[in-house]
Amino acid sequence: MDTKHGSATRLKLMETARELFIAKGVDRVGVREIATKAGVNLSLMNYYFRSKENLLEEIFEQSIKDNGQVLRGILNEDLPLEEKIYKYVNTYIDILTEDPLLVPFVLSIIHRNAEQAPRLKAVHTLYNTETFSNQLKHEAEVGKIRKIDPEQFFISMISLILFPFAIKWLIGYRMTFTPGQMAKFLEDRREHVYDMLINSLRP
């Protein structure tokens, strides 16, 4: 089989499956529907992925691996704490703005496979890093910030970033936002989240 054509077919199947999973829910979409919508023979679908679970895992890995590595890279950079937090918040929001369906999709996969999620390689890119934890501890020891649990701070940071994207449609409904107003609201989160995080660290 032509490698270039095969790669294009795999990508088409993954993109189609992702769209269907987000629109209908993972458990309401079968491999036949994915193959039909993608215009691919079902036997090819089975050849590439063998099962829907394998397909799900590959989409999950693709969805978060590269972005997760970028975000972990920021946490490990040799930057002043405030600059690092600012860069992390803005980069994360850039990622979510570019792909607003990423949060609900990833959450649905993790919840569906809660016990198996830790074995997915890409999951580990979503964790805090030792470098960032040690930086928070050191800053507290020298009196630059108040003493804080690094894991609690990290969870608070990603929660402030992610949650509005997870409930984007609810916010839009509650506030009767137009698409433009919703985009502006999420854009304003950059400074709002950064200010909250920095204020929470002040001695």
Rank of each mutant, 00 (worst) to 15 (best):
T131D: 13
L71R: 10
R146N: 10
R18K: 13
M14R: 12
K121L: 11
V31I: 13
I59C: 05
Q69A: 08
I85Q: 04
E15Q: 14
S63V: 02
K137D: 10
V70L: 14
A38I: 02
N54I: 00
E33T: 14
T125P: 02
G39N: 09
P150Q: 01
L197M: 12
A140D: 05
P164L: 07
V89C: 05
M182P: 00
D188F: 06
K147M: 06
K168P: 05
L56A: 03
Q181F: 03
N134A: 09
T125S: 15
M196P: 01
Y92D: 00
P80G: 03
V193T: 15
S133K: 06
Y194Q: 11
N54C: 02
D2Y: 13
S63Q: 10
K84D: 01
Y88L: 11
R202K: 15
I109N: 03
H138E: 12
T129Q: 07
F165D: 10
N76R: 10
P203W: 03
R32A: 12
M182I: 01
G143V: 05
E15F: 03
K52I: 09
H124V: 00
G39M: 09
T9F: 02
I64G: 04
N46P: 00
S156Q: 13
L201P: 05
T125C: 09
K4G: 02
S133T: 07
F163P: 00
L136P: 02
I110L: 13
L55F: 08
I161C: 11
L13D: 03
L162F: 14
G25E: 09
T176K: 14
R32I: 10
M196F: 13
M45G: 03
S200F: 12
E61L: 04
A114H: 06
E115R: 10
G180C: 00
P150G: 03
S51P: 08
M182Q: 15
N54E: 12
N46H: 12
I148R: 05
Y173F: 14
I110N: 01
I34G: 09
P80I: 01
P118L: 05
L186S: 05
R112T: 07
F154D: 01
Y86F: 07
M1Q: 08
N113A: 09
K12D: 07
T3A: 14
F177C: 04
I64Q: 02
Y173S: 13
A122Q: 03
A8K: 15
H192L: 14
L96D: 04
Y48V: 02
S7A: 15
T9S: 09
N128F: 00
I155N: 09
L55T: 04
I74H: 08
E57D: 04
E19Q: 14
I59W: 07
L160V: 01
K12R: 15
L56C: 05
A183I: 01
D94G: 02
F177N: 09
E58D: 12
V123P: 00
A122L: 02
W169L: 12
